[in-house]
Design a protein around this nucleic acid. Structure first.
Lengths: 235, 235
DNA sequence: GGATTGTAGAATGTCAACATTATTCCATTG
DNA sequence: CAATGGAATAATGTTGACATTCTACAATCC
């Protein structure tokens, strides 16, 4: 039997602690690595919408065989990032305007649900954290740091989704989030839009703090529907 | 064993007409055939919840290689019917009670959305068709034909989903439908439950006929939430 | 006797080769 | 000259074999 280089055998006791995780955590399946890379390529726009994903070329570029690439591509299909045509390959999904608008509606619906659930179960600590994030976002706008606002905005919505305690709903929300990102047409974000957007965040948190599930649902949905309206305005 | 009709083999001229479709229609990819078979096995309960799907055994039984079986299994994972554990294989998903209840909530949310959209765009023909189906279901109850009621019930909900004109939402509703079917614990359907259920159908159709989107949303959601309540009652 | 280590078996993960299908382009025919 | 038919080509579909990992069991050591 062949024996392979095992990092756990040669690292000193001092280094063990910091490397424990790496050592004991199972190696990630190759498929997941490939999947993440393909997802990144698509969401970053390195491959254009409608373009074909060449199995062989990708396999060679990533240094793996076609099998994992195939599986990864099928995995992306589930999230709506690509579409597969038999005997023709997989293509980066091209969202029609109608598709995008439907996605906004659907996402607004889910977001409303998540906000309502958070409103019903939020404790003082969570409320304070959400309120703090809104304040931080306002500060980011004041400092004209759009990148930071974008980052905080993602974290804010992720936190709400995570704290709702509904795993399946959270996963669906995240999946739809990736799907809408296929729409390259970025909703331009001037300072005015950011102020409006963050005011909506404030309304969501206010409803959560008040424990008003229905108001939180409406505020969460409205926030996404306003995003939809901003998209329409750019058409 | 899955055997396929090969158009290159001789078929008599007489048989041509009846077999035209089969001959000229592209052969479905093997993966889809396997996928459908596995899905049937799971939803029919031929493989118990939590049970492992043996790649090799299934491949031999279906007369294909392990590749298509693997891909089909991954496809099922995307629909939430199985879960994959690295180096351990794929297992029929075992729904916890919490999971099932969340699915009911999520499905109620989506169903409400679909009903609201149908209420906004339904024409006279569709309204008549929906009303007729409710009447037929009532007749099925009178005749104590539970199987027929079940069938009509599925068609009724499928029609609403299809006519809403929101492809992504419809697909999601269907996917969630398969997922909830994992919960073997059937909600027992006595005549009383059927009457109540169909009365809810009537309320949905009434709201659609009135063009009241909000009422339709509430009626559609309530119908599914009542199903959830019936499930809870059996615990 | 209990814990540990090594080994054997079986399962999944990965790969490269082969088979099939679809497109393209050119020759042929009307 | 247009249309049709067929090879050449390149992609996906499928397969069987090999590599790796995990579980179980038994032999060994403390």
């Amino acid at each position: 039997m062949l024996t392979f280089y095992n990092p756990s055998l040669v690292i000193g006791a001092m280094e063990m602690a910091s490397n424990m995780r790496q050592v004991f955590e199972r190696r990630r399946p190759l498929v997941l690595e490939v999947r993440d890379e393909l997802e990144r390529m698509i969401l970053c726009g390195e491959v254009a919408a409608g373009e074909r994903l060449d199995e062989l070329a990708l396999a060679e570029r990533l240094g793996v065989s076609r099998g994992p690439v195939r599986e990864a591509a099928r995995s992306l299909e589930r999230d709506g990032l690509v579409t597969t045509v038999a005997n023709h390959g997989v293509f980066v999904r091209k969202l029609s305007v109608e598709d995008a608008l439907e996605l906004y509606d659907l996402r607004a619906l889910i977001a409303g649900q998540l906000c309502a659930q958070v409103a019903e179960c939020a404790d003082a600590r969570l409320r304070a954290a959400l309120r703090a994030e809104v304040t931080q976002m306002e500060a980011a706008i004041d400092a004209a740091e759009e990148g930071r606002y974008f980052e905080l905005n993602l974290a804010f919505h992720d936190r709400i989704a995570a704290e709702a305690g509904a795993a399946r709903t959270q996963a669906l929300y995240a999946s739809l989030g990736k799907e809408v990102r296929l729409m390259r047409r970025q909703v331009l974000k001037g300072e005015a839009s950011l102020r409006l957007s963050n005011r909506e965040h404030g309304r969501i948190v206010a409803a959560i703090e008040a424990g008003d599930a229905d108001a939180a649902r409406r505020a969460g949905a409205a926030h996404h529907l306003n995003g939809k309206a901003r998209l329409i305005a750019t058409l």
